[in-house]
């Protein structure tokens, strides 16, 4: 196994030999079987693969809301295994932004209040929190919906609110789980362009789960998961270099490893 962790201490996400299984009544089912995964700072990486291949699981592990069974996980230079629960919570609060597949907005709160939540959790005073939240709503084109409740918004609008909420705390690393799944093609393109701009203009790191091949061109790299193993996919690698010329085309693709003996 290649020990790239040593050389990639500055990377946003370093995952090495990651194993994860879910304990069920029928026994434990392995979901991730020795995955290596690296995202450099400022990269926009897509996680793709068939349904049930463990994409969400991997994203949850990166997001520190799920702990791995084995392997090394380092997020923004911090070894997740070495962190206490509280430290992980702090890492999520201060450095990560989540966009969940089903938005997971809070029903009782208006759009603006929803966007404010991460700032409230950070202890930022309500007035400045609202000002910042408003500017983000403006950025996603929903300034006029600030006082609406999520139930009065369309799926696309909800997704944009969720996006604003993920970005409001100015996180370094943004994790998105199928953010375009409930959007039509045009809306999906908009959202993807926004993610793209976040990386190129603001230097954010984005890890995005999708199986929508039409948007692969927005990624710096596409990481393919299948049966809990990482598989390099040359076609995706190509589509990446077509989609985003300047970033990452000269960065070497690291070897993607999969311990086959672990799998089937």
């Amino acid at each position: 196994m290649i020990d790239y962790c040593m050389q990639n201490d500055g990377a946003a996400v370093v995952i090495e030999g990651l194993e994860k299984s879910y304990g069920t009544a029928a026994g434990s089912t392995p979901v991730l079987k020795g995955v290596d995964f690296l995202v450099r700072r400022g990269e926009c990486v897509y996680l793709a693969g068939p349904s049930g291949s463990g994409k969400t699981t991997l994203l949850s592990i990166i997001g520190c809301i799920l702990s791995a069974d084995h392997g090394r996980v380092s997020i923004l230079g911090q070894d997740v295994f070495a962190l206490s629960g509280k430290q992980r919570t702090a890492l999520r609060r201060n450095s990560l932004g989540f966009v969940f597949q089903r938005f997971h907005l809070i029903r009782g709160l208006t759009t603006l209040d929803n966007v404010c939540v991460p700032l409230t959790l950070q202890g930022i005073c309500p007035t400045s929190a609202r000002r910042r939240a408003m500017s983000l709503l403006d950025a996603v084109g929903l300034a006029d919906k600030a006082d609406k409740h999520p139930c009065n918004l369309s799926a696309g609008q909800c997704q944009r609110v969720a996006l604003a909420r993920a970005l409001v705390g100015d996180p370094e690393l943004i994790l998105a789980d199928e953010p375009t799944a409930s959007l039509d093609a045009a809306n999906g393109q908009d959202v993807m362009e926004l993610f793209r701009r976040l990386t190129t203009e603001e230097g954010k790191t984005v890890v995005l789960v999708t199986h929508d091949q039409r948007i692969f061109r927005f990624a710096d790299r596409v990481f393919w998961l299948e049966n809990g193993c990482a598989v390099e996919n040359s076609r995706e690698a190509q589509s990446k270099s077509q989609g985003s010329g300047e970033t990452g085309s000269e960065q070497p693709l690291y070897a993607v490893s999969c311990d086959k003996s672990n799998g089937e």
Partner: peptide
């Protein structure tokens, strides 16, 4: 009713205390 929302809050970094 709001278990999911509390889960969301936890995921985006709400502490137990909060």
């Amino acid at each position: 009713d709001r278990l999911g929302e509390y889960g969301t809050l936890k995921a985006i970094g709400a502490t137990e205390k909060q």
